[in-house]
Design a protein around this nucleic acid. Structure first.
Ligand SMILES: [Mn+2]
Ligand SMILES: [Mn+2]
Ligand SMILES: [Zn+2]
Ligand SMILES: [Zn+2]
Lengths: 131, 131
DNA sequence: ATATCAATTAGTAATAATTATCAAAAAGGA
DNA sequence: TCCTTTTTGATAATTATTACTAATTGATAT
């Protein structure tokens, strides 16, 4: 895979952000450094980079995919209101795979704990709007 | 929430299927009993039923949502090739929430173990195609 | 049973996110 | 430099879902 400036900057900015951005959020950030870049280039490279294992594609809830420049093993919590994703610090791996009794013929490749919750922004919004 | 025949049959068929169907897969099944039903009615009711907690909406990977008529707590494995979802039998809950050290301000509502793997169908397909 | 009124429906249009296409540009040798 | 392959930007197409609307249905009160 060639290193183009587009590809390099997309990867750099994704690794810098800790927000697990969507493709269009990342596009807005990258555009500041490459004003002529196309949104299609962002989508294309996020796909290629995740195939290459250099980033992670997060396909939890919501309709938009999110991306993570941090490929070290860690868990996420997804806000059920707005779809925002944050890392969750967890204790060192109790062997979660050991809880499986029957995987119905599936060859299990990986497993992780997934949390759902309400993010600080949405908690604040609820408090003020009293809804 | 009113019980219409459409709503009743959508729920019945979803509870009968153990396949975690997509909206259009369920539409095809329901159409055999209600040939004049609209796909929009299926989408609308799946949304309403899941708001009411009578079914579960599964938004793991893939672009299509899947639905589960079984609302008892259980884990799923998602096929990374085709998106198919199966139940995973697990040992009784070790308190997974206890592994959280820092949830970054999120109010955590629920957590579950999510597995990724390759389903029996895709394993067979790999074997014969040798790709 | 009939009138009333809100909930729901079928059919279709609109939207949103992603993917596909393609000619032009850039990269990397020989 | 010239040639070949990869990548890009621009835009069209696709896909899944949601929104809209007039007509129908169901529940309730009279
Ligand atoms: Mn992360
Ligand atoms: Mn299930
Ligand atoms: Zn939120
Ligand atoms: Zn599969």
């Amino acid at each position: 895979m060639r290193i183009t400036s587009q590809r390099e900057i997309i990867l750099e900015e994704l690794q810098r952000l800790k927000t697990h951005p969507t493709a269009d959020e990342l596009y807005e950030v990258v555009k500041k450094r490459l004003p002529r870049i196309s949104i299609a280039t962002v989508y294309r490279n996020l796909e290629r980079l995740s195939e290459a294992g250099m980033i992670h594609k997060l396909e939890y809830g919501g309709r938009q995919k999110r991306f993570d420049g941090d490929t070290s093993p860690h868990s996420h919590v997804v806000c059920v209101r707005c779809g925002r994703i944050s890392d969750v610090e967890t204790r060192d791996d109790m062997e979660i795979l050991d809880i499986v009794v029957d995987s119905k013929g599936y060859q299990i490749l990986k497993c992780g704990v997934q949390f759902e919750g309400i993010c600080p922004f949405c908690q604040e919004r609820s408090k003020s709007k009293k809804d």
